[in-house]
């Protein structure tokens, strides 16, 4: 049984901000289907009442004093930006 359809892959690609050509769509659907099928072996395990581990260290809410620290100046922060104008990052239009 297929775990994932071409439509699922197209939807996920949009969520991930990736474009997938028609040619790649088929291959990617097959590959993801195989990987997800492989991952479903986890269903063999009973995990009722097992706490999920999101992180191995027992730390929560690491806080620090709210004081001004040295930071990058504007020129440095923009050094790697592909396009910029008036000291700001420039991007293509968001709305038509």
């Amino acid at each position: 049984m297929a775990h994932i359809s071409k439509e699922d892959v197209e939807h996920v690609a949009h969520l991930a901000r990736l474009s997938v050509s028609d040619e790649d769509l088929e291959k990617l659907t097959e590959e993801l289907d195989a990987i997800i099928g492989f991952a479903e072996q986890l269903d063999e395990l009973d995990t009722t009442d097992v706490e999920p581990t999101s992180h191995v260290l027992d730390i929560h809410n690491v806080l620090r004093e709210d004081t001004i620290q040295p930071s990058l100046d504007r020129e440095e922060a923009l050094k790697n930006a592909p396009d910029q104008k008036d000291g700001q990052v420039k991007v293509p239009s968001v709305l038509e």
Binding site: A39, L42, L45, T47, V50, P52, T53, V56
Partner: peptide, 10 residues
């Protein structure tokens, strides 16, 4: 589910 299995592995 994967995070729960992670607990079992730990």
């Amino acid at each position: 589910k994967a995070q729960q299995v992670r607990t079992l592995i730990r």
